[in-house]
Design a protein around this nucleic acid. Structure first.
Lengths: 337, 337
DNA sequence: CTGAAAGCGCTTACAG
DNA sequence: CTGAAAGCGCTTACAG
């Protein structure tokens, strides 16, 4: 029933190959000096027995478990997923597995999970938040390399990887300008979020360097379609002149698109619309399909893993690395042939 | 720097409590007979030293790692997420952590991952697919309890947990009938998918038991908004009379809603629309908000974990457990006060 | 190049 | 109730 070799250990291999336990170990670990002949015998024995080393025992001796604890703040949030996927991807390159757990936004639970994870001797810890604001640090008392992903640590002596929201705002705005727009409105998300503020700042800074003024002051609300619709109505009611709208999220943008359609304002001919997130189900399905900024969450996750071992490679030192966004052009900003 | 107790082991605790290593172990493990007095001393010693048992060593001896391998077929698919969340939730109740990995739809990679996971001595294996069709079985050669979630195993001697698509079709259709509709059309997804076929079957069976006929034969296409729009156009062009549409997914339903709106057909007054998935971002944001069937993925994930230890509790035996859907009423089927 | 021995940190019969 | 000993399955100085 069992996997062939599930119950065979190194001792069995050594016996079959007629060598000592230690020689068998060395033969299989390549880095030790063993005659080619005996190495061959051991490897052959291992294969005929279907030997698979017990990583638990190995970990105990070499003091490395080949696992990393990944603590997500809210697994159910969709945003965490691509980050997790990037983490998994980068980890699997090193043959390391993530031990996954969900803190559910509960700091007490988070601390409990850390203890559990540490008891399981994880080689590192990655915290994945669900927004880009700063979060409390665990300080340097954890005893293993630690990285904060998406939500950055409030402490500059920690390693964090987050989004470059300022660049996101710049990129979106520049694209609008590059495609010939000059009266641009910005419908942002919740004002307290750094994602909102930084994207708005990027927006304003690019306008300034292009000698343009915003169509109106950046408007803050929330991240919903409803807010997108309401904001457009407000724009219209206030008689603001605009030929483009930079929305801080795809959901907002979809609401904007809806309302513009309802008002018979043609997109992109009369007004161009760009969103942020490149959330496929929204961006690709809206009419017209929505141009957006991809936040490269996968890459963010991968970078988090790399930062984990930043002691080993040439280190940039602690602090926050910001992943830039990428423009994904669809039909809401340019007329495609 | 290190966590207090990160480097203290049971030997240290025993020394401080002035007992033997074995007594210290027993005192901490509660289930052995130790005098209350010495137990107290040991526990106190453990606390003052901040002792944390090394689970790796513990696992090695008791032959249980407190981990379960979770192999996802495609981490990036959103659907897998709530299942994973349910798995994590149920596992964490037992203080077990999932070792997560992504097979990326590659069978060879999947087999490699299994070996890795087994080498790490996982106590069980859960495979999470991304659709409800059957998938190849790994047979009973894995040596640890195994459960297939969402995508069920083709072998009836395996444990699988999936969706009750037939019930989903029934539930949606019955709701439409209960709210006074009688000319119901069904816009389904891709014909080859069992999810499409079984939901359509449920649809037809409920109509039959209510002495109703479908407005037209179930229409198969894909799972997209575009298909939803196209299907409505076809309905209209063919002059089909209908007062309700059961859509096999929320995305399809959103396309349907769009087109009905465009054609100035009022929802829910003239036509009721119901979807499947209860995908918040779509269902809650559409206009009117979409009534849908929640597939209870969290519950599915939790059930998968329970099936893993089904040997222990009263066992229903292997085979496929089907999780029923739940009706979530919004505004697209009933006029709310 | 090879092997005996100690050790990683725990648990659990087995004696006393 | 307590402790000495063996063992879980590996790795790695240390001798030879």
């Amino acid at each position: 029933m069992a996997f062939r070799g599930d119950d065979v250990n190194l001792r069995d291999v050594a016996a079959l190959a007629k060598v000592s336990l230690s020689t068998a170990s060395k033969a299989l670990n390549a880095k030790f000096d063993v005659s080619e002949q005996t190495r061959g015998r051991v490897i052959e024995a291992a294969e005929t027995l279907g030997y698979r080393p017990n990583m638990l025992a190995r970990s105990l001796t070499i003091r490395k478990s080949g696992t990393v604890g990944v603590i997500i703040n809210d697994l159910e949030r969709n945003f965490a997923l691509p980050v997790l996927s990037g983490v998994e991807d980068a980890l699997s390159d090193q043959n390391i597995f993530p031990l996954l757990c969900d803190a559910r936004g509960d700091e007490v639970r988070e601390r409990l999970l850390i203890r559990e994870l540490l008891a399981r001797k994880v080689d590192g810890l990655i915290f994945i938040g669900h927004q880009t604001d700063k979060r409390p640090s665990h300080g340097d008392s954890l005893g293993v390399p630690t990285v904060y992903a998406y939500a950055q640590s409030e402490s500059e002596t920690d390693y964090s990887v987050s989004i470059d929201n300022h660049q996101v705002g710049e990129l979106a705005t520049q694209h609008l300008i590059d495609t010939g727009r000059s009266q641009i409105a910005h419908i942002s998300g919740e004002a307290p979020h750094s994602a909102s503020r930084d994207r708005a700042a990027g927006f304003l800074s690019v306008l300034r360097s292009n000698n343009l003024k915003p169509a109106t002051r950046p408007m803050f609300g929330d991240w919903s379609e409803g807010w997108g619709r309401a904001a457009v109505q407000s724009l219209l009611k206030r008689d603001v002149h605009f030929d483009a709208i930079f929305c801080a999220s795809d959901q907002i943008a979809r609401g904007v698109l809806d309302m513009l359609h309802h008002e018979k304002i043609s997109v992109p001919d009369t007004v161009a619309v760009i969103g942020v997130d490149n959330w496929e189900v929204i961006a690709a399905n809206s009419r017209p399909a929505l141009t957006s900024i991809d936040l490269n969450f996968q890459r963010l996750g991968r970078k988090a893993v790399h930062q984990l071992s930043s002691d080993l490679v040439q280190d940039e030192g602690p602090g926050t690395v910001r992943i830039p966004g990428t423009l994904v052009i669809r039909d809401s900003t340019v007329v495609r042939s």
